[in-house]
């Protein structure tokens, strides 16, 4: 295994490690709240997997500098072609020098995080109800109670 491979792949290894820690918590612990914590860790590792894929070395966040953006903002659609003179050219060159990291994974994960917290809240609500009905949040005790009911 070469150094190049380690530098190129360490992000995946970290993600796999975190993912497996979360997975371990989910399968090894019987406490339902602890399982939700494990799921959260698992979920965050998936976010990190996507975000690391969007990164470009030497890139910057996908937010266009104000100079470039303003040129487009004040170019009304009707006279967009008229402004494409010498000044427009130099602006395009500054824009070309910048490398933007990929915005697509950011978009996907942004919505996933908020949906994730909403579903986590749903799971926690179910746990509260389970506790009220069974008097415990330990998985094996709940199964035991179900068997003898």
């Amino acid at each position: 295994m070469s150094i190049e491979q380690v530098v190129g792949l360490y992000n995946y290894w970290i993600v796999v490690f975190l993912m497996m820690t979360g997975f371990y918590i989910v399968i090894a612990r019987t406490n339902l709240i602890k399982s939700i914590i494990g799921l959260n860790i698992f979920q965050t590792s998936v976010f990190l997997l996507y975000i690391t894929m969007g990164r470009i070395n030497g890139g910057t966040a996908p937010i266009i500098p104000a100079v470039v953006a303003d040129a487009h903002a004040h170019a009304h659609p009707a006279d967009a072609h008229a402004t494409d003179g010498p000044a427009g050219h130099s602006l395009h060159e500054t824009a070309d020098e910048l490398i933007y990291s990929n915005p697509l994974p950011s978009v996907l994960m942004l919505t996933a995080i908020v949906v994730g917290i909403a579903t986590t809240a749903l799971a926690l609500a179910l746990i509260v109800r389970i506790r009220e009905e069974y008097g415990t949040v330990e998985e094996d005790e709940i199964l035991e109670l179900d068997r003898y009911s």
């Binding site: 909403a118 809240a121 609500a125 509260v128």
Partner: peptide
């Protein structure tokens, strides 16, 4: 939507009395 859902979820949890 996000503001009101998050606030509502908090209300739902905080409004519940502890059992026993």
């Amino acid at each position: 939507t996000v503001t009101s859902v998050m606030t509502m979820i908090f209300y739902a949890f905080a409004g519940r009395n502890s059992v026993e």
